[in-house]
Computed example of a mutant assay.
Amino acid sequence: MTRPARLAVDPIACDGRALCAELLPGFIRLDDWGFPVIARRDVPAELQAEAATVVRLCPRLALRLERAREET
């Protein structure tokens, strides 16, 4: 089973190129200045591979995919 994960953006590193919103439009939208606004919910398991790709393709390395810790 895939662990829950959330997308996060580093607003200092981001320069608003909007590639992430183009690649994952159902989960990332742009604000009035062109910076990403990320949904505040877990990335569905079926979109986690796409989300990981978006993180890798971010030209400013401003995105990260934060996985929930496994409970012991």
Rank of each mutant, 00 (worst) to 15 (best):
Q48C: 00
C58T: 08
R64E: 07
I12K: 12
R67Y: 06
D42W: 11
P36Q: 00
A49D: 05
E22N: 08
R41G: 01
L30Y: 05
P4Q: 12
D42C: 01
G16W: 15
A8I: 11
A18F: 00
T53L: 14
R40Y: 02
T2R: 14
L7F: 03
A62N: 11
L47H: 14
R67N: 03
V37T: 04
A68V: 02
A21I: 10
R60A: 13
V55E: 04
G26T: 11
E66K: 07
A49S: 12
P11W: 00
R29C: 11
A13Q: 12
L47G: 14
R6E: 10
L61E: 12
V37M: 08
A18P: 00
A52L: 06
D31W: 00
E71K: 15
E46Y: 15
A52M: 10
V43T: 02
D32S: 11
L30E: 12
L61W: 07
L24C: 03
G34T: 05
R29A: 08
R41L: 05
W33I: 05
E66L: 09
D32W: 04
P4A: 05
F35L: 14
I12R: 13
L23R: 04
P11L: 00
R41W: 04
E70W: 01
V9L: 10
A62G: 15
A39G: 05
A21S: 10
L61A: 15
L65H: 06
D32Y: 01
D15F: 14
R17A: 09
F27C: 02
G26C: 04
L57T: 04
D31E: 08
E22Y: 10
F27M: 02
P44T: 06
P4E: 10
T72L: 04
G34D: 09
C14D: 08
A18G: 11
P59I: 06
I12H: 05
A49V: 05
R56P: 00
I38V: 15
R3W: 01
R17H: 14
F27L: 15
L47I: 06
I12T: 10
V54A: 05
A13Y: 13
R60E: 15
F35V: 11
E50Q: 11
A52R: 12
E50F: 00
A39C: 12
A18W: 09
A51G: 03
R40P: 06
G26Y: 01
P36R: 08
A62C: 12
L65W: 12
F35W: 03
C14A: 11
I38S: 09
D15W: 09
V37K: 00
P36E: 08
P11M: 08
D15A: 13
